[in-house]
């Protein structure tokens, strides 16, 4: 197990290193005129050269890369071009917002997805099953930004028109500052993400549960005279959850950099939104920093999932 873990972690480090090469290459090979933008329209070539020198942009790309890696290994991701704020500081401010979004939404989609999946699988081809399948496919096909706008229309605009001001139009209030306001600002983003992802989980749980319920040991459990409820939840669901847990790990990892649209629609200043801002301003250190953190989240989530899998199923370790 320890060897498996070490091998996976080393592989993860290689992947992260390759990502830094790829991202760095992409952004630094393409000519950028951020120094010109910073210097303003009236700037002399000397001013631009000075700014380029200060940002280290006059160095050869390979040297900039080595400097970047060296500093990154020391926990320093550089400074943003515009206000000289440390990138780590910007990420530290945005990350809790993205995490509030991801964790809150994940609770809703897990409960909704697994519960609906079990209901579907235990009543195959019934009205409930067909209804739930249609329901999940509907949200599975829904573009995230469209769902966000529709929810805003119904819950913010229509309710506010009727004097119910429970849901704001967007923005973020830290939990420490006002828990109630935090909750109100997070509910619609949570529901948006949760509905989109619950669909996958409903389908996954349904398929996996149907597979498991066909196994011999389920028949054995039933023949022992255990209640159907116990058969389904204790014997069936337990085994059926493995692929769901895997998917959950992967999704959670991807959400760190993947909630861009939800954050944009609801103006949440999380990692995705911060990155989009940085992209429009060509603020390379911030973009690279966020891409790196988001990729690391995916890599770590994958390792955790693999280890959990290997711990559950010894056959995996052989490969």
């Amino acid at each position: 197990m320890a060897r498996f873990l070490i091998r996976r972690i080393l592989q993860g480090i290689v992947v992260l290193w390759l990502i830094t090469v790829a991202v760095f290459g992409l952004f630094f090979v393409v000519p950028n005129d951020v120094a010109r933008t910073l210097a303003g329209r009236q700037a002399t070539p000397e001013t631009i050269a000075l700014i380029q020198h200060r940002l280290g942009l006059d160095q050869p790309v390979w040297k900039q890369y080595l400097d970047f890696v060296w500093r990154a290994l020391h926990g320093d991701l550089g400074y943003d071009y515009y206000h000289q704020v440390p990138v780590t500081h910007i990420i530290a401010q945005a990350l809790p917002i993205t995490l509030s979004l991801a964790i809150g939404a994940s609770i809703i989609w897990l409960v909704l997805g697994v519960f609906n999946g079990v209901l579907s699988a235990t009543h195959p081809r019934s009205l409930e099953d067909r209804g739930l399948t249609a329901f999940s496919l509907f949200f599975y096909s829904m573009p995230p930004f469209l769902l966000g706008i529709l929810l805003l229309y119904v819950f913010y605009y229509q309710l506010t028109l009727r004097g119910v001001t429970w849901f704001p139009a967007g923005g973020y209030v830290p939990f420490a500052q006002d828990p109630t306001a935090w909750f109100q600002h997070m509910v619609l983003p949570w529901i948006t993400l949760a509905l989109l992802l619950a669909a996958t989980y409903t389908r996954l749980t349904r398929a996996s549960m149907l597979d498991v319920l066909g196994e011999d040991y389920i028949r054995t459990a039933r023949s022992k005279g255990i209640t159907e409820r116990r058969v389904i939840y204790r014997h069936g669901l337990r085994a059926a959850l493995t692929p769901v847990v895997t998917q959950f790990g992967i999704d959670l990892g991807q959400l760190v950099g993947g909630a861009v649209v939800t954050e944009t629609v609801f103006s949440l200043p999380g990692l995705g939104n911060t990155a989009v801002d940085a992209i429009t301003r060509q603020d390379l250190p911030v973009i690279i920093g966020i891409v790196l953190v988001a990729s690391a989240a995916v890599v770590i989530a994958n390792i955790v999932v693999d280890v959990a899998y290997a711990a559950l199923d010894p056959r995996v370790r052989l490969h």
């Binding site: 992260l16 952004f27 950099g257 861009v260 989009v276 992209i279 995916v298």
Partner: peptide
């Protein structure tokens, strides 16, 4: 598969 697709795509 590890790269945050949408972010890099936008960039």
């Amino acid at each position: 598969l590890s790269v945050p697709f949408l972010l890099v795509a936008i960039a």
